[in-house]
Simulated assay, not measured.
Amino acid sequence: MTDAPILITGGAGFIGSNLADRLAADGHRVRLYDALSRPGVERNLAWLRSRHGDRIEPIVADIRDATALAGAARDAKAVFHLAAQVAVTTSMADPRADFAINIEGTLNLLEALRERNDGTPLIFASTNKVYGDLADLDYQLVGDAYAPVDPTVRNHGIGEDRPLDFHTPYGVSKGAADQYVLDYARSFGVPTAVMRMSCIYGQRQMGTEDQGWVAHFLIRALEGKPITLYGDGLQVRDILDVSNAVDAYVRAWQRIDQVKGRAFNLGGGPANAVSLRQLLAHIEALVGRPVDVRYSDWRAGDQRYFVADTRSAEKALGLAPKVNWRSGVAELARWLAAERRLNLPIDEPLLQAAS
């Protein structure tokens, strides 16, 4: 193991801090590049420093600062690029900032590695939004959830062979960055891989209405505040515990010679597919009281159904079994209640049963 640091852009964020914790625990030096603009992430940074001390090197800077970013990447032995503008709603309000952060920021980092020309790998956090709103699929209602009529999609989910179809400025910017990352492997030999993520949840997630919705639902329920569902609440996502996501990122780095130039769909898969209404029912059981649910119009680019076909990632990366969504959400509820010092009761028998 060399003493060169591993660079994580967005390293104080939800996935970044969990990834940093794993890498530092494995004995690596970890350089966190983060603007600390998202509320709550400074607590993640403090937590990492308290656990790992000097193995954590923070750089507080913006991904749009090409000079600072090149300096941070100058001696990194690997790069995990998680820094991004992450909300569809924000991209609709300010497309220029979305473009500058997600496309220019990614290009800045790729150029820094291309100029090094020494085989430093980059693993990129992409999104299922690169597949668009999937409006061409036919759906049927099964209980309180949408299900695809196509049996292959229903049984396995959306595969990487699905045509790309960018929708909303966020979808365009993340999709363009996704393609830049893959092309730098083809055109310039930079060893890169792309993770097209479904909904990741878990400890250290500071969820908001626009991003991190599993944690957001839990926080609102724990605080006794109303939750707004956009659409009918029957839309389905496959949710993945952050520990499984971190393992996939680490394994992609470890196997970069075998997977460079490839994109993988990363999510909970069909076994962890859940509609918003089904998740809320589980949350109500955990907190022991009804949740005040309100409804509003569908939002731009929202998918009625997205479940990742994870077979390619599982085979190529040798991934461990996924955390069951019920037990994972129960553990997140426990962590959020403790982290926010909430005295509201969580149903301990249900927590134990879910685990």
Rank of each mutant, 00 (worst) to 15 (best):
Asp144Leu: 13
Asp144Cys: 13
Asp144Asn: 15
Asp144Thr: 11
Ala145Pro: 10
Tyr146Ser: 11
Tyr146Thr: 11
Tyr146His: 04
Tyr146Ile: 14
Tyr146Asp: 11
Ala147Cys: 07
Ala147Thr: 13
Pro148Ser: 02
Val149Asp: 00
Val149Trp: 05
Val149Pro: 04
Asp150Ser: 06
Asp150Arg: 07
Pro151Ser: 08
Thr152Gln: 11
Thr152Ile: 14
Asn155Cys: 00
Asn155Leu: 05
Asn155Tyr: 00
His156Gly: 00
His156Ser: 09
Gly157Ile: 06
Gly157Leu: 14
Gly157Pro: 01
Gly157Lys: 08
Gly157Val: 10
Gly157Met: 09
Ile158Gln: 07
Ile158Ser: 00
Ile158Phe: 03
Ile158Arg: 10
Ile158Ala: 07
Gly159Tyr: 07
Glu160Pro: 13
Glu160Ser: 05
Glu160His: 08
Glu160Met: 10
Asp161Gly: 07
Arg162Gly: 04
Leu164His: 09
Asp165Ser: 15
Asp165Phe: 12
Asp165Pro: 14
Asp165Cys: 15
Phe166Val: 01
His167Asn: 11
Thr168Ala: 04
Thr168Val: 13
Thr168Arg: 15
Tyr170Cys: 06
Gly171Cys: 08
Gly171Asn: 03
Val172Ala: 01
Val172Pro: 04
Ser173Gln: 02
Lys174Thr: 08
Ala176Glu: 14
Ala177Val: 12
Ala177Leu: 09
Ala177Glu: 02
Asp178His: 13
Asp178Thr: 11
Tyr180Val: 03
Tyr180Thr: 02
Tyr180His: 08
Val181Cys: 06
Val181Thr: 06
Val181Asp: 04
Asp183Leu: 09
Asp183Thr: 09
Tyr184Gly: 14
Tyr184Asp: 07
Tyr184Asn: 05
Tyr184Arg: 03
Tyr184Trp: 09
Ala185Arg: 15
Arg186Ile: 06
Arg186Gln: 08
Arg186Phe: 12
Ser187Tyr: 15
Gly189Lys: 03
Val190Tyr: 09
Val190Ile: 14
Pro191Trp: 13
Pro191Asp: 12
Thr192Ser: 07
Ala193Cys: 14
Ala193Gln: 13
Val194Ser: 10
Val194Ala: 09
Met195Lys: 04
Met195Gln: 01
Met195Val: 03
Arg196Cys: 07
Arg196Thr: 06
Cys199Gly: 03
Ile200Glu: 00
Ile200Asn: 00
Tyr201His: 00
Gln203Cys: 02
Arg204Thr: 01
Gln205Thr: 01
Gln205Leu: 05
Met206Cys: 12
Met206Ala: 11
Met206Glu: 08
Gly207Met: 00
Gly207Gln: 04
Glu209Ser: 08
Glu209Asp: 07
Asp210Phe: 02
Asp210His: 04
Gln211Thr: 00
Gly212Lys: 01
Gly212Val: 04
Gly212Pro: 01
Val214Thr: 03
Val214Arg: 00
Ala215Thr: 07
His216Arg: 06
His216Trp: 11
Phe217Trp: 14
Ile219His: 04
Glu223Ile: 04
Glu223Gln: 15
Gly224Arg: 12
Gly224His: 15
Gly224Pro: 10
